[in-house]
């Protein structure tokens, strides 16, 4: 059984400790905001200039001056603060953000990330804050499906798409398994799909270390 997008988000959100400052990238990672454990205070940072960001705004709460990085209207809970763009990225670059979650086109077994540009001649590149987050957050997590629609594994020996950051990814949350990259080595922590380690390694075509905790 594979995890749905929401289930990956839920599994990911469970790993943020109380007090964590977290930046969720636009797109898939934003889903994790819906699953933050209620018994912990997790402070969301949004690159457009807010800490302590709230949930998505309901219809009657929409304020055009209060949006997240994906330009979705959000709310302003107690404890929130605002700041300009240079401060917002200083928070990343300066190592003040505990966790960031990014989407990915490819992640290499040594933690390189490619997620901003396909490199195709007619593609219009758009990087946004991805490179800043990739080098700045203390822990860089990636959330993505393990295989493309064409069946290519997105965890690879070496990225073929243009890089976002080098050796920066620490964990990869996918629909089929959870991976950890430590000292340039890829380790499986949990398998969600109905297969064992050998079958997963065979399907992926990369060397996997066994980090599975006995069920």
């Amino acid at each position: 059984m594979k995890l749905s997008r929401n289930e990956i988000a839920e599994r990911l959100a469970a790993d943020f400790p109380d007090g964590a400052i977290v930046n969720l990238g636009i797109g898939l990672p934003t889903l994790a905001a819906d699953y933050l454990p209620e018994d912990r205070e997790i402070i969301l940072h949004t690159e457009n200039g807010m800490l302590g960001m709230g949930r998505a705004a309901a219809e009657d709460e929409i304020d055009e001056d209060l949006i997240n990085a994906g330009k979705i209207p959000v709310t302003e809970p107690a404890g929130a603060s605002y700041f300009h763009h240079a401060d917002s990225f200083a928070m990343m670059r300066g190592g003040h953000i505990d966790y960031c979650v990014l989407g990915g086109y490819q992640v290499s077994v040594t933690g390189d990330l490619a997620n901003w540009h396909t490199g195709a001649a007619d593609a219009i590149p758009a990087v946004g804050g991805a490179m800043d987050l990739a080098i700045g957050a203390k822990h860089v997590y990636v959330m993505m499906n393990l295989f493309t629609k064409n069946g290519d594994c997105k965890i690879v020996e070496q990225c073929t798409y243009p890089l976002t950051g080098i050796g920066t990814v620490e964990r990869v949350y996918t629909d089929m398994a959870l991976f950890e990259i430590v000292d340039g080595q890829l380790r499986v922590l949990e398998i969600f799909a109905d297969m064992d380690l050998a079958a997963l390694q065979e399907a992926m075509g990369v060397q996997l270390l066994d980090g599975l905790v006995a069920a």
């Binding site: 240079a86 590149p125 991805a130």
Partner: peptide, 15 residues
Amino acid sequence: ELEVVPQGNLAERIR
């Protein structure tokens, strides 16, 4: 013409 700049570099270069 297009010059794509990582968002934090854009902000810091302006700053």
